[in-house]
């Protein structure tokens, strides 16, 4: 399937916060509580449309356990966007955000767009982290923030698509130089119908919406 741009995303956060479920909800529009835990990394992909341009999101879903941090760090290379996920019902997953962020800052491109997601917001009765705390953390660290639920699909589309929107805007604003091969180090590939350079106008590429692909 042709795309104007391909963005590489990485999903990070403590084990069991729902990274794989968020990905599955986004790519397959379903919630599967019983799935195998992630060893190393798993991949997902989906086409979205922004500004009438087909954009392919290639998403890396990583293992969350501390022991695997050293290998997870090698996945940051060339990611355009990151979803940093915590579980609103488990305080410690929120407490660990700073260390995840440090990894991301250290190993990823400085212009990587990071979206903070407080997952499992359907479990409000077991909430251990308030929405305000999440907002506050995001503000302090310059992240976009959203609470979401992989189970009910609330805000899942938005989380992935808003991140893509932000990256797309960075391209339009000329933050990334997508006119040459260097764009790949930002986690962006220009595909068929892509516009080289920040100020390109619309072209005739077909818009591809919503479907899943791999």
């Amino acid at each position: 399937m042709s795309y104007a741009y391909l963005f590489k995303y990485i999903i990070i956060g403590d084990t069991g916060v729902g990274k794989s479920c968020l990905l599955l909800q986004f790519t397959d529009k379903r919630f599967q509580p019983v799935h195998d835990l992630t060893i190393g990394v798993e991949f997902g992909a989906r086409m979205i449309t922004i500004d009438n341009k087909p954009i392919k999101l290639q998403i890396w879903d990583t293992a969350g356990q501390e022991s695997f941090r050293s290998i997870t760090r090698s996945y940051y290379r060339g990611a355009a966007g990151a979803l940093l996920v915590y579980d609103i019902t488990r305080r410690e997953t929120f407490n660990h955000l700073a260390s995840w962020l440090e990894d991301a800052r250290q190993h990823a491109n400085a212009n990587m767009t990071i979206m903070l997601i407080g997952n499992k917001c359907d479990l409000a009765h077991r909430r251990a982290v308030s929405t305000e705390e999440g907002e506050q953390f995001a503000k302090e660290h310059g992240l976009i923030f959203m609470e979401a639920s992989a189970k009910t699909a609330q805000n899942v589309e938005e989380a992935f698509i808003n991140t893509a929107g932000t990256i797309y805007k960075k391209i339009q604003d000329g933050v990334f130089d997508v006119s040459n091969e260097a764009s790949q180090s930002y986690g962006i590939k220009v595909g068929y119908g892509g516009i080289p350079g920040p100020s390109g106008g619309r072209d005739g590429s077909t818009s591809q919406g919503g479907g899943c692909c791999n």
Binding site: T15, G16, V34, H35, D36, L37, Q65
Partner: peptide
Amino acid sequence: GLIEKDVVRTDRS
């Protein structure tokens, strides 16, 4: 907690 989370994600099919 970790083990509880993982055993329910191991070969459940």
